[in-house]
Write a protein that binds this DNA or RNA. Structure first.
Lengths: 206, 206
DNA sequence: GTCTATATCGGGATAGAC
DNA sequence: GTCTATCCCGATATAGAC
């Protein structure tokens, strides 16, 4: 593994663990047993590291969010959301200090907003595919509020979970986040699919 | 107004506007046209300011959250949530850099968790009062997931709104946040109360 | 590519006069 | 209570040797 990539890799880990603002370039270098000078040979400055990591996140998440023309079954939706959550968890430092990071690195602000919009589209696609199947019954306003809340949960679940649990050593619970998103759709579902969702949930959460 | 209070007041404003980590003690002093030395006469250090502001927030929000033994009507619930949102908005710097602040000022971590728990209790009270009235129909699991999501929305709506809109100058929209919370209850409501909620929403949002 | 040494800068905080 | 001056330190970033 090339040094440049090792720097990115370690930075990501430390950022996720301690929060980007709390991690210095010296700590990154120390963790890698290289000199700070070496780090600055590979990266002009700290923001270049963040920019690169964000770009990487962006391409991963866009990849995921572009696909879902038609995620028909509950099981597929569960999987889809789980992949989204996993990706966010991998780059959670962005979400944990979102306002801060967006205000200090203003180039990524529009890019993040675009991701939010894509999340919204994906949520709408999921719901509309259910509507088309006649499984989900809701009017326009309900649907819009539902999708907004889905995006909110997708965006903040991991931070929320961290505040409540992880800060004191407990494990992060992604599946629970997936559940919390789908639980918002549940009340609009037909009785049968609602039970099906319940089954799937129990299988993954217990 | 005593200098000490002016410091608190201005700090709160600057923190909310720019994010606590981006505001220096010098900036606070400058804004007040006092010297940094003067600031440090009134406060031992920056964290004492934050601590004091948090304490103030804590007492406001606890005051609100303690009341709701029985918030029966939709209209009352709207008002209650609006007050909660307003309080959070007033101290939004805490929420905007939540993970960061909780990790750097570890004394407030348990206190914030307690607030989260109270939010959860308040949400449960709201829902259960509706259940008792026979207005809301849901099983235990649905109810629990619902309340969790309500707390999540209450906690992060304002940050979410800021990321999407306010960072580029638009106004913050508290009523929309209230709506997003109540919209989660809506699908569980009886037809009649659901319509009623719709009316109230339209009155406040348009 | 990597190191050591160092410059620079900014923010937090203190000393001591008034 | 308030000011000016200053210290201290930690973080970013650079210079130059190897």
């Amino acid at each position: 593994m090339k040094t440049r990539d090792r720097i990115l890799h370690t930075s990501l880990q430390l950022f996720n663990e301690h929060g980007e603002p709390n991690v210095t370039t010296l700590q990154i270098a120390d963790e890698l047993d290289i000199s700070p000078g070496n780090l600055y040979y590979h990266f002009k400055n700290k923001s270049e590291i963040i920019d690169e990591l964000f770009t990487s996140f962006e391409s991963h998440i866009n990849n995921l969010l572009d696909v879902p023309e038609d995620i028909a079954g509950i099981e597929d939706q569960w999987l889809f959301l789980h992949l989204v959550f996993e990706t966010i968890a991998q780059y959670r430092f962005i979400y944990q200090d979102l306002v801060n990071i967006l205000s200090r690195y203003d180039k990524i602000q529009p890019r993040f907003k675009r991701i939010l919009n894509r999340k919204l589209s994906a949520s709408r696609n999921m719901c509309q595919s259910l509507v088309r199947q006649g499984i989900l019954l809701a009017n326009e306003d309900d649907l819009e509020a539902l999708c907004q809340n889905m995006v909110l949960t997708i965006t903040y679940w991991i931070s929320f979970d961290k505040v409540r649990n992880v800060l004191n050593g407990q494990e992060m619970d992604i599946s629970r986040g997936v559940y919390q998103v789908l639980a918002q759709i549940a009340p609009f579902l037909r009785e049968e699919e609602r039970r099906q969702l319940q089954m799937v949930s129990q299988a993954y959460i217990g």
